[in-house]
Write a protein that binds this DNA or RNA. Structure first.
Length: 264
DNA sequence: AAGACACGCAACCGCAAACAA
DNA sequence: ATTGTTTGCGGTTGCGTGTCT
């Protein structure tokens, strides 16, 4: 259920109207998204506040960063969180606690916000229910280990569940820039690969993964890493070979004239 | 059909860490 | 060493939509 944008004043003309410089808040309009995406794609990120300024957005740098990280980033997975991913979340939450960004860093294509929301709205509730049910049964004093709370686990790779791997909506151009090395601020490079700590291992491991994870228990952290490498859907060096991706990007998602018409 | 409620998601807020001047 | 700025994080809230009564 995607909330319909309620940006009554997508141009920023509203919001009281008089203070042109006043920061906009609330949902992002498609135009704002487009401006932000184009700005970052073509010019990278020096500082987020400058991104907001250069893109002509009346948004805080913070807001721009959040929008990019949680929504516009080309490497985000758009499909719902799979059972396997849910198991990983549960397992990592057990070992790391509510360190959502760390958990997200180990789940390519997922954001901390997404994981946090998923946890708060679904898993936590379910675990609580399970714990309560356990107490009612008198069956145990501890809630069942989260990993065992599962839910039938498909042996298949999550990436293959939904059929052919979808072409990430905006990845190609972004990847071109990344590989080109041209625009590189620190923001754009970290956004393209993933935040920091897992980047080297994930990218290097991607090509060697064997395709299927072992049957190790969910609580096994080594297995989690292995499994996650397996989940990395869009290794940067493969993206350039996706036939027609650029065409799709240009013709459907962001026609050249729609971007070049922006002033920045 | 309509209102109440629950759910899920997007975004904001406040804080702390990192960095620059 | 100090101060100001920016970034990143986790918690929380607001709101649209779906479901139930």
């Amino acid at each position: 259920m995607v909330r319909k944008p309620s940006h009554g004043d997508s141009t920023g003309a509203g919001n009281g109207g008089t203070e042109a410089a006043k920061e906009r808040k609330g949902l992002w309009s498609p135009e704002e998204d487009e401006r932000l995406f184009a700005q970052i794609t073509y010019h990278g990120v020096s500082t987020w506040s400058s991104v907001a300024q250069l893109a002509g957005l009346r948004r805080s740098g913070k807001s721009c960063r959040l929008r990019w990280m949680n929504y516009l980033r080309p490497d985000l997975k758009k499909e719902p969180i799979s059972k396997r991913e849910e198991e990983v979340i549960i397992s990592l939450q057990q070992s790391l606690g509510n360190r959502w960004s760390t958990i997200a860093a180990r789940m390519p294509g997922r954001t901390d916000n997404e994981i946090k929301n998923y946890w708060n709205s679904r898993i936590r509730k379910r675990l609580n229910d399970a714990a309560k049910a356990g107490r009612d049964d008198g069956a145990g004093t501890e809630p069942a280990p989260a990993g065992e709370e599962k839910v039938e686990v498909e042996p298949t790779n999550a990436a293959t569940e939904a059929g052919p791997m979808p072409i990430p909506a905006r990845f190609p151009v972004f990847a071109c820039q990344m590989l080109d090395g041209g625009v590189g601020g620190r923001g754009i490079s970290s956004a393209g690969s993933d935040s920091g700590e897992n980047t080297p291992s994930t990218t290097s491991s991607t090509q060697q993964n064997s395709g299927e994870e072992s049957e190790a228990s969910v609580g096994d952290s080594n297995m989690i890493h292995f499994l996650l490498f397996d989940d990395l859907d869009y290794p940067a060096d493969l993206v350039m070979d996706v036939p027609g991706a650029m065409d799709a990007w240009e013709s459907e998602l962001y026609p050249a004239n729609s971007i070049s018409s922006l002033n920045y």
